[in-house]
Design a protein around this nucleic acid. Structure first.
Length: 257
DNA sequence: ATGGCTCTCGCGGAGAGA
């Protein structure tokens, strides 16, 4: 089964681009982030025509997450307890009784002095707490985590340490989540590769290889042994026929569920 | 050092993103 995550930076603005990728790569289950779309105008029927059912936790203008699935998918829950004021950022579904699939859009934090930074740390605490209370069995949590785990995961390397996305506090929060028993599937397969999932739109960052790896597919114990490969789909960070890409590339894993 | 683009909302230009 092909499992994917993608911050699309506006689902409606990206719909034609997203459709090309779905047709080309045929993922079975996809987590989208940054829909910027209210639930009542989410193009459910469009995805149905492409063979997907959709579960949506959206909002007007900002944030928003959704799950597409070619297999029967049942909504488990949306959101984090006590965190509804930071927007629609988490959705979980059971996929055909085989595994639980969660996708998240973690808060950005803006800068170290901004109130959103403390809010980001608190959001992570809530996430780890809720994740720990989840059920046993195979689970995937993927999405845009907005934290650079290690110096190798950013183009500036150690020079970026201490800045937003690269602080000890943020990295400790991500580590606490990982310490519940999660494996970062990309890093598991490619322990020494420098690979990015996001590049700034400005200044030709993509071509200058100025990016960050902040989008992950994390899996509970045993799923790594079922995983055949993990791909950061850089080709889909490029313009296609004058269609503007997201600033994030899709990431997918092929897993024998 | 800074800003460099793109999105939404809504019709100008501000706010957010990472």
């Amino acid at each position: 089964m092909r499992i994917a995550t993608w911050n699309v930076n506006g689902l409606r603005a990206r719909l034609e681009y997203i459709t090309k990728w779905l047709e080309d790569k045929q993922p079975d289950v996809v987590g989208f982030q940054e829909l910027k779309t209210p639930d009542d105008v989410f193009p459910i029927d469009h995805f149905k025509e492409l063979g997907y059912e959709a579960l949506v936790h959206g909002q007007k203008s900002w944030n928003g997450v959704a799950i597409l699935s070619k297999h029967p998918a049942e909504l488990v829950h949306t959101g984090l307890k006590g965190q509804s004021d930071v927007g629609s950022r988490l959705i979980t579904a059971d996929i055909d009784g085989k595994f639980e699939f969660t996708t998240v859009y973690c808060p950005n934090g803006k800068n170290l002095e901004h109130a959103d930074y403390a809010g980001k740390l608190g959001w992570y605490d809530s996430l780890t707490k809720q994740w720990q209370s989840g059920k046993n069995g195979p689970r995937i949590i993927c999405g845009d985590f907005n934290i650079v785990p290690e110096p190798i995961d950013g183009w500036k390397g150690e020079a970026a340490d201490g800045g937003i996305f690269h602080t000890k506090e943020e990295r400790a929060r991500l580590q606490s989540l990982m310490d519940t028993g999660l494996t970062d599937l990309y890093r598991h397969f490619y322990p020494d590769e420098q690979a990015f999932t996001w590049w700034d739109y400005r200044g030709g960052s993509f071509h200058r290889k100025h990016g960050l790896r902040i989008d992950f597919i994390l899996a509970t114990e045993g799923v790594d042994a079922l995983t055949k490969d993990v791909v950061i789909d850089r080709d889909y960070r490029r313009k296609i026929d004058e269609l503007t890409p997201s600033d994030h590339a899709p990431v997918y894993a092929d897993i024998d569920f």
